[in-house]
């Protein structure tokens, strides 16, 4: 299925270094905490402006690491991580801060500040980065909360929210400063089906309404197929498959099939590497 589709949404079949519309581009990126254990090895990935792209793969395959590279918390050991054509690794401190100000990130479990109310959580980035008067901040916060349907919960503490509500509050905080790029780290983890669907729809709507570029790191294939434009599959630190929703659904690639259908054994082995059974019980 690789790069064969003529679908107009298939924009990233071959990484184009000079692609003007590319918001995010990873070129041959490798990363490892230690040289012996590489988490990413030679990842190529392109995300055009205004698109919603999912990065999928099993647990611990290096998906979250890609997000950390994008927001400059980690530096790639080789290759380039380009945001609007600029390598994150070579940004000055000021440039990095400017980059982060235009970036929103939704953390796995929301990462709401536990010592602040919902209102203060969303007001936090505004207060820290702008000199807006209190009245304007109040209106903006209520608007953001309204967008996620939680205007009534403004005065609650994060500990009083259900998992789904907390995720929506975190979403509102993520978009508080109208970022041009939003990164979602496992936004569906631990949610009930209704909350999951609500959050999924919200991510799609925000992406379209605010014209943001979104990268969604998840292993929830069913929900992703409903909302995203394009999907990358990552396994053992490299991109093993990619394509738009239709081509993924129609794919005959064994890895994609195993992942989409949730088969226990396939290219991803059920058994952790071990000596043969006959050997072990001899």
């Amino acid at each position: 299925m690789h790069s064969a589709s003529s679908n107009e949404r298939n924009f990233a079949s071959t990484p184009q270094p000079t692609d003007a519309s590319a918001h995010i581009e990873l070129r041959e990126v490798s990363f490892g905490y230690t040289p012996e254990r590489q988490i990413l090895s030679g990842v190529n990935l392109t995300v055009p402006r205004g698109k919603l792209v999912a990065v999928m793969g099993g647990s611990g395959c290096g998906k979250t690491t890609i997000l950390r590279l994008l927001c400059g918390q980690h530096v790639a050991s080789s290759g380039q991580v380009l945001v609007e054509g600029k390598d994150v690794a070579h940004m000055s401190r000021d440039e990095l801060f400017a980059h982060r100000r235009k970036l929103g990130m939704l953390f796995q479990f929301g990462a709401l500040f536990t010592d602040m109310s919902v209102f203060e959580n969303i007001a936090f980035p505004m207060r820290e980065h702008t000199d807006l008067p209190e009245a304007v901040i109040r209106d903006l916060v209520l608007l953001k909360l309204n967008a996620v349907g939680l205007r009534g919960a403004a005065q609650l503490r994060p500990s009083e929210l259900s998992g789904g509500m907390a995720r929506r509050v975190a979403l509102a905080r993520t978009i508080a400063l109208d970022p041009s790029l939003v990164l979602y780290d496992e936004p569906f983890a631990g949610l009930d089906p209704i909350s999951l669907s609500v959050v999924g729809q919200m991510i799609r709507k925000l992406n379209d309404a605010l014209g943001m570029t979104s990268i969604l790191v998840t292993h929830d294939i069913a929900e992703s197929l409903k909302i995203v434009d394009y999907i990358y599959f990552i396994s053992e630190g490299r991109v093993v498959a990619e394509g738009d929703v239709e081509s993924i659904k129609a794919s005959t690639d064994p890895f994609v099939k195993q992942f989409v259908n949730g088969e226990p054994d396939g290219p991803v082995r059920f058994h952790y590497p071990a000596v043969a059974l006959e050997e072990a019980f001899r």
């Binding site: 990130m105 953390f107 980065h129």
Partner: peptide
């Protein structure tokens, strides 16, 4: 980490 990403 969330603060860090918010450039705070």
């Amino acid at each position: 980490a969330a603060m860090d990403v918010m450039a705070i």
